[in-house]
Every structure is written in C-alpha cells, then in structure tokens.
Design a protein around this nucleic acid. Structure first.
Lengths: 230, 230
DNA sequence: GGCTTGGGTGAATAATTTGTGAATTAGGGG
DNA sequence: CCCCTAATTCACAAATTATTCACCCAAGCC
C-alpha cells in the first residue's frame, strides 16, 4: 500500500505542486486548504505523514499540530516562510518532526519525508541504487560510473540520465519523458538538452562493450539496448 | 533474511555437498560450475559471501576474484587443493578474506564462514566506534584522529563529520543529510557550514594516502572515497 | 574578567556543469 | 533520388555550485 500524505496548505499553487509531485513519487495524497479541514481530513484519511503549513486560515498550524498530538504521534513536517524560523525550536518542542523553510525544492521535500519516515520507523531501508552490465557499473549511491572497473568522472545529470535509461533496459524513452523523469516535471527546457547529454555519455562509453549501447530510436527517443550488437 | 552464499566450484560432488550442508544450516545458496557463470551469478544473486574454487573452467578463481573486487567488497573464501598453498599469500593480497584447503570438513567451512562474516561486519557484534583505513584511524570512543599513528588534534564536529562519512565509504551524502545526521535533524543552519568543515578536514588529511580521500560530488554532496586515486 | 578554541556566517572568488543556437549530418517517405 | 524532418555535434554563454577567507560569537578555562 502506498504511503499516505496529508498536505495542509492554503496556497493553492504550493499545495498543487506538492500534490502532483508526491503522487508522481508514489504517495497517496490529500489536500486541506485550512486548519479546520486539516484536522477533519486527518481523522478520516488517516495519513502516515502530514505536511503542515503554519500560517493557515480558520486554525493555525500550531493548533492543528496540537489537535493531532492529542490522539496520534503521526509524523508532522512543518512548512514555514523564511523569517519565521525562530519558531523552529518551539515547533519541534511541540511535537513536530521536522521543518522545511519556503521556498523549497521538491527534491528537498522528498528527502525530508523519507528521512522522517525512516527515523520514525515508517519506512524500510531502500535498496542500493546500483546497476551492473558487462564492463559497466552505474552506482547512484556513490555517484560513480565504472567502466572496466575504472572510475570515469561523470557529472550528476549525465549519470542520472544513464541510470534512468539503464534501469529499464531496451525500453524507449521520449525526450520529454526523460526531461520529466530525470530533470523533474517542473523543468522547462529544450529537448535538445537530452541529445547533448546522450552525446557526452556516448563519448565516455564508446567501444566499451558490444553487449549494450545507447541507441537512438528515430523519431521517438532513446533507449539503453541490451544484447549483442546486430 | 537468510545469509546468501554463492558457491563457485566445478566439482559436482563438492558443490552438492556444500550446497546441501549450508542450506541445512540456514543459508541461502546458489552454485556456479565455472568462473564465467560465477561472475554472472554474483551480479544477479548478490550474495553476502562467496566460496570460490581456484581451479575453474572458463575463468579461474583469481580472475573471478578480481572481477568481484572491481565493484564489491563482499567477503570471499578461496578453496584450494593441497599443494596449491603457496598461492595463499597472493590470494589474500588480492583481496580474499580467507582460505580453506581441500579436502575439508563441513564443520571447518562453517566455522570459517562465521569467522569471516563476523570479521567483515556481516554478522552481529558489539562494535566500538572506530574506523581504520590506510594510515588513518578515526576513533569516536576516544575522539581521536590518528594519521600515520600520530595524533592530530581535531575538534569534535570535524571528527564526527569525518566518522560519519567514513562509516559508509563511497556513499555520497548531501549537505542536508549531513546536517541532519551529524548536527541533528533539529539543527537549523546554512549548508555552507558543511563545506567549511570539509575544508578543515582536508587540510589535516592532505596527502596522507592515495587510498582514500574526501571527494566532492558536484551538484550532490561529499563522500569518503576508497580505492586508489584515479 | 580576559583568553583561547571550536563552530558558524557571509561574501568574494573559483571551478564546473549545464543549456542553447546554429551548423552539419543522417534517416525515411514519396 | 530528393526533400523534409530529426539527430548530432560544436563552441560558447549562463547558471549553478564549491572553495576559500576573514571574521564573529559563544563556551570553557585559566
């Protein structure tokens, strides 16, 4: 079953962004736009974790947190605007589990959600992000690329792209899919960007093995192709 | 989950014997009958320990060991016939963890497996907070840093940071992870702080060994990298 | 109270990666 | 075989990120 996250946030844009992003990451989410609805939804939705804004209509975040803590110890991450940071200590004292300062990046939110879930025991350790093929090791834990056992210096975006392609061998990804999935759905950029990264990867991987290759599927996109070359 | 053992051995009788005996003892085992299959199975099965014969068809034990060591530090116990014992030293030098001479008793094998697992941390053991690498000892019990056996005065935060990084060699930590895990999740501070501590550590550790280093992973974070420098 | 040391901050500087435009080459359909 | 579209490539600009320096604050210690 997916992990359930309740988002209590009155700013529609932020709420929507969190909603979309977390759904994409495999969470089940619900949004409440004020503190009162937040408490209601908490009771009915029974989330595994709560993202809670401090400044809210009807009932502020502190009060919501207090209500939640009367009955549950569900992890809560507070969202706060810059400058309210002095509230941090009191927030943690009142039972919040972590704190994120706006504006935040989605990656950051995700990392903290995982950190809190791990800390509170709601999540099992993820397995290592490592892929091996003939003469090739792609390791996203150490961010290194090994070709014939030799480290090859590779920038993060390139490595993430390669990892993404290689984690579904033979599957074709369109440029826009890759942009969405590697760069993030909120990235707006030319799809030629992908081509350039593919090129730089090909330079590093040229002639290493005939058991796999980065193949262009004309008119569609790219794939990491496995098997002996034709 | 049971401990996984990969058996690479071409003699069917011995392989079968090891297989049966270890399964009975609660291990999960897989058997490869030649070196090539051994390497393949190693990648897919991802064992916790390998029993590796030296004399093998297709690819000999030394080569298999080398391939394994390119990417993993999984413990390996070499199996050798009587008379090949002069290989022992070179075997251990090449990264084998132990050595068993045929013919052997099953009890002997079991004892050595447990010993190696204990030694390499694959099995529970009360552990002191001490890490050693080439020319470097990090001791969090005494809060001491030893470089070439010499004590180097190091403030607590720096030492904790180094210890944390070095306790998961090669794994990349983001600045926020480090702030969470070393400074505490309730610490609120700039992530430049991490940079400064890294710098101070680097000053202390500069040029000590080429077997490890504090490496920046651009766009991601830092890691304690093991292995000869590229 | 003054002094020393560890820890943290902000800003200037340096280093790299990443993205883009334009020119070039290759592919596929008619 | 030609044309149009897509892909590749290059060089460069821009954005991002890391390093470093100088300095401040606070705690612990004479």
């Amino acid at each position: 079953m997916p992990t359930k996250v309740l988002i209590v946030e009155d700013d529609g844009n932020i709420a929507e962004l969190l909603h979309l992003y977390l759904e994409k990451e495999g969470f089940e989410t619900q949004v409440a736009k004020d503190g009162g609805k937040g408490v209601e939804l908490f009771r009915s939705f029974q989330p595994d974790l709560v993202l809670l804004d401090i400044m809210l209509p009807v009932m502020d975040g502190w009060t919501v947190l207090k209500k939640i803590r009367e009955t549950d110890k569900t992890p809560v991450i507070m969202l706060t605007a810059k400058g309210e940071t002095e509230d941090k200590v009191s927030g943690l004292e009142q039972g919040a589990d972590d704190y994120i300062v706006k504006p935040f990046e989605m990656k950051e939110v995700l990392a903290r959600i995982h950190a809190v879930l791990r800390r509170t025991g709601g999540e099992e350790e993820p397995q290592e992000k490592k892929l091996s093929f003939d003469k090739l090791v792609i390791n996203l834990d150490s961010y290194e690329l090994l070709v014939n056992g030799q480290r090859v210096d590779t920038p993060p975006k390139e490595l993430e792209l390669l990892y993404h392609l290689a984690s579904s061998p033979n599957r074709v990804f369109t440029r826009n899919q890759l942009l969405d999935e590697v760069w993030g759905f909120d990235y707006f950029g030319d799809s030629r960007t992908v081509d350039v990264h593919i090129k730089r990867l090909r330079e590093k991987l040229e002639g290493v093995s005939d058991q796999w290759r980065l193949k262009t599927v004309w008119g569609v996109g790219y794939k990491f192709e496995l098997g002996p070359s034709a």
